[in-house]
Design a protein around this nucleic acid. Structure first.
Ligand SMILES: [Zn+2]
Ligand SMILES: [Zn+2]
Ligand SMILES: [Zn+2]
Ligand SMILES: [Zn+2]
Lengths: 126, 126
DNA sequence: CCTATATTTGCAACTAAGTTGCGTTAGCAA
DNA sequence: TTGCTAACGCAACTTAGTTGCAAATATAGG
């Protein structure tokens, strides 16, 4: 169904994603926007923004949910499948443009793939 | 520190993994062994078995923890990194022997990769 | 601008995976 | 058999995410 109203909550959430291109965890959004809106609102708005192809979600290293801006997705068709990189040092997560090739798996049909890389980012390299 | 005693709990857990080669979620283990042992015991024993290189763990599609037998791992050195396949139909999860090649990522050092494939397994294909 | 209506929100209560602290039990080696 | 210590059970806790409902608000139509 997606977002049908441009509410204050939706605007504030999208502003957060405009500030930087990195992904943001739901936990972080709840912390940052604590005084602006309820966590239930955050969960529901993110859900709808994903439906609309504005954001996409994935799970970070603890199984917690993260969101990031989509590049070329439309509603109900997230064709922007790419790996994500989480820095084990600073915790930052980014979408990668590199392609990970999934081999053919005998006797199985692969519909989705989810690749999370963990390591050290440029800032934390020293 | 790993397992140092062969307790009844450890034996019962390992029996579950001998029954089939598929991975088992912690949730399933807690259900199955409910009358045999406490869930805290299950969490702690699995943790130690992973330390010892007997089992390895990963996160399924909901971010819930799964365990499977290791093939060639030793304590503190899980070199058996491979993709996992979860059937979206029956929920079963298997370790795959296929190799997923992770490309070089500029400005980042990848230490660990985690690949979860979702799709339809052989049994659910019809 | 005003009103009707459906969407969105806040709140409080809930669910469920995983963790912690502590007193008791039980492997195992001497 | 005994003693030490790892492992266990239990209950209470933590926390990410969900649900139901009444109140608020965006938006279209008049
Ligand atoms: Zn970093
Ligand atoms: Zn992404
Ligand atoms: Zn299946
Ligand atoms: Zn595996």
């Amino acid at each position: 169904m997606g977002v049908v109203r441009k509410t204050k909550s939706v605007k504030l959430l999208l502003e957060e994603f405009e500030k930087s291109s990195s992904a943001i965890s739901v936990i972080t959004l709840i912390e940052r926007l604590d005084s602006e809106m309820n966590k239930t609102t955050i969960y529901r708005a993110l859900d709808k923004l994903e439906d609309d192809g504005v954001l996409h979600s994935f799970l970070g290293k603890n199984g917690h949910k993260w969101y990031a801006k989509c590049n070329n997705c439309s509603a109900h068709h997230h064709h922007d499948v790419h790996p994500h990189f989480q820095c084990v040092d600073c915790g930052k997560v980014d979408c990668l443009s590199e392609t990970v090739v999934i081999p053919e798996i005998p006797n199985r049909k692969v519909h989705f793939s989810q690749v999370l890389l963990q390591g050290t980012c440029e800032q934390c390299f020293n």
